[in-house]
Design a protein around this nucleic acid. Structure first.
Lengths: 223, 223
DNA sequence: CGGGTTCTTGACTATCTTCAACGAAAGTGG
DNA sequence: CCACTTTCGTTGAAGATAGTCAAGAACCCG
């Protein structure tokens, strides 16, 4: 999951970015807080998330962390680079994934549909990351947080009357490291959104979007 | 071209990220300041740069710009998303490129080597972009500029005695929009590097790295 | 040479970070 | 189940980094 432009969000009426039909292969189940792979691991398989949330991270030598992406159901993670994983990947919740051999992506001699699906996922990944650049490089803290909430709304929101509710599966620190901010700034920004009645925070991990349109507005301009 | 971690830069002793052998296909030549493609264009071809420099950009509705990447010789640009280009692509210098049909990437039934090469390029693109996230999200202005110069040094530097010289093909505004800064900050940071004798600026577009090791140090820590 | 653009520099400001304290929530062990 | 510890989130005050605005210098191009 990346923070993409609304244009891309609303363009096609499909909620999951890749093939709507999630494979019927047997799923691998994992508890929260486990590593699916580490940076540097040999990458033999790709993973499509059936259920749960993953976090992809990368570190600098001196310990600063960047959350590269969150993985939600439908997302595919683990694209290799020179045969190796380039990020750590950890489960934030109990998760089930189905896996594909990297050779399915690279040649896919047997199953052309799967080959095509994995390739399209890789290409979609590239364009989603391009949008995310725009967000990291050019948006204010308020815009970043609003954009982030908009994407979560799209991906995991549940309609409650005229509002939209979702559970934040990640910590404030995770959000901060994803958006290039600090936990304090995340916290303050959420408080502001709460005080201006755009969102409500039921408990620390449950957000209710009260004014979806206002949130979209905030995601785009500083005013 | 993205700003990647030194680990990745020095890992393999290959200067160009993809296949060293540049195709012998006939090249398309273009003058500086021309568009190779626009955002939204139908994407029928990928381009590998033989010579020159490209700039990939993306805009927000309200006119803020992000330079997604610069394309240097060896780089491949134009990966499509849902059959369309997702960025603008413009030549910064006179440029020659060779092109590949998108179908070479997607199926490649005829030429397996090319298919494999384009796919690996896409995968390398993903991991390079992941590194770039770390830079955009977590590095200071000084670290960003130093990192940027390090990459240029690697990609287009020319040994001059014990120093390394290169020509900046892009404007300060381009660098700013690439690193998520302003032109003023780029200018000030370059001035600082010049005053501390880490670099020299021969003319506005010609940089000489006087202390390559110091520059690498600055790229990694704020001190 | 002249006009326009780009780059640099300065002064000031805003945004976000840092540091610190406190409160809430969650995990641990008796 | 409750006290204890630890982690996580919120809030405030102060500070730093980068942005904004403005002016002048350098460069480019006809």
């Amino acid at each position: 999951m990346y923070v993409t432009q609304p244009s891309q969000l609303f363009d096609p009426p499909c909620s999951s970015p890749v093939s709507p039909k999630i494979s019927n292969k047997t799923a691998l189940r994992m508890r929260a807080g486990k590593h699916l792979f580490h940076e540097g691991d040999e990458a033999s398989r790709l993973y499509q998330i059936k259920d749960g949330v993953l976090r992809l991270t990368r570190l600098t030598k001196d310990g600063r962390r960047q959350v590269i992406a969150f993985g939600f159901p439908g997302d595919i993670v683990g694209f290799p680079s020179k045969g190796r994983h380039h990020t750590d990947c950890e489960t934030l919740t109990n998760t089930s994934v189905v896996s594909y051999s990297v050779s399915m992506l690279e040649s896919g001699d047997r199953d052309l549909d799967t080959h095509r699906m994995l390739l399209q996922a890789a290409l979609l990944e590239i364009s989603a990351m391009q949008d995310h650049f725009l967000m990291l490089g050019r948006k204010s803290a308020a815009e970043k947080v609003a954009s982030f909430l908009c994407v979560l709304e799209e991906r995991i929101g549940i309609r409650i009357g005229q509002f939209i509710k979702f559970h934040l599966p990640m910590s404030r620190a995770d959000i901060a490291d994803f958006l290039g901010l600090t936990t304090e700034t995340i916290s303050r920004t959420l408080t502001q959104l709460r005080k201006s009645k755009v969102i409500a925070i039921k408990n620390v991990q449950t957000v209710i979007i009260l004014k979806p349109d206002a949130l979209i507005g905030l995601a785009e301009s500083t005013n």
